[in-house]
């Protein structure tokens, strides 16, 4: 009986996964192109002005909410702070293309796996991990979107980009899927980490 239940759960999970639309669905034949880092838009563009986001980390039905603040401190450095709504500091990160400094992280979260997760997520969102120039597979898709696939040492990064406004709609990166629905208001970025014990992070723009 237990085996039957287990098989049913696995079968359902596989079915659900196969039904989820692929990041390539509706796209034509891909051709090889040479691109620069600037050809891939950033999900979040850090500027000299302070930008604020609502951040929710969900893990096993628990939700941890805070305010994420991002500001470019100089041409190479981006600072990211996360505070609880109550005002307490939760995280303080400094990012450059080649470095990630943890100035502060709540004790409960200060584990190598969590630090790595934040590092990879922020690098992905800020577009800091790509080399200056690289070779990619590119194809046109339905709904005026294009598909770009890049092989890096860390794995494969696949993007679905809206060609009208040059906004990223979806990313499939090593360990994480990112979704940014075009017409969400406020603009909402959902990072679903793959794996049984991985959190989902939802970031919403605030005025």
């Amino acid at each position: 009986m237990r085996n039957l239940l287990f098989v049913s759960v696995v079968a359902f999970a596989l079915l659900a996964a196969s039904c989820a639309s692929s990041i390539r669905s509706g796209c034509g034949e891909a051709g090889r192109v040479l691109l620069s880092r600037t050809d891939i838009p950033s999900v979040i563009v850090a500027t000299d002005s302070l930008q604020t986001f609502d951040m929710e980390i969900s893990f096993f039905g628990k939700h941890l909410n805070g305010m994420m603040l991002i500001k470019r401190q100089d041409p190479e450095t981006v600072r990211i702070l996360v505070n609880s709504y109550f005002g307490m500091s939760m995280a303080d990160f400094e990012m450059r293309a080649d470095t990630f400094v943890v100035h502060y992280l709540l004790d409960a979260m200060n584990k190598p796996s969590v630090v790595n997760l934040f590092k990879n997520d922020f690098k992905l969102l800020l577009g800091l991990y790509l080399p200056e120039h690289f070779s990619a597979q590119k194809s046109l898709c339905k709904q005026l979107e294009e598909f770009i696939s890049i092989e890096t040492l860390q794995g494969k990064y696949q993007y679905r980009i809206n060609m009208e406004n040059q906004n990223i709609v979806r990313i499939k990166a090593p360990g994480v899927n990112v979704e940014i629905p075009s017409h969400s208001s406020p603009r909402t970025i959902t990072l679903k980490h793959r794996g049984l014990f991985s959190p989902t992070i939802v970031i919403k723009e605030m005025k």
């Binding site: 302070l50 604020t52 305010m67 603040l69 500001k71 600072r79 702070l81 505070n83 709504y85 005002g87 303080d92 100035h103």
Partner: peptide, 14 residues
């Protein structure tokens, strides 16, 4: 609520 952040020399108001 005014949270002052030294690193940004700025405050968040709620």
């Amino acid at each position: 609520q005014e949270k002052f952040m030294k690193v940004f020399s700025d405050k968040m108001v709620s």
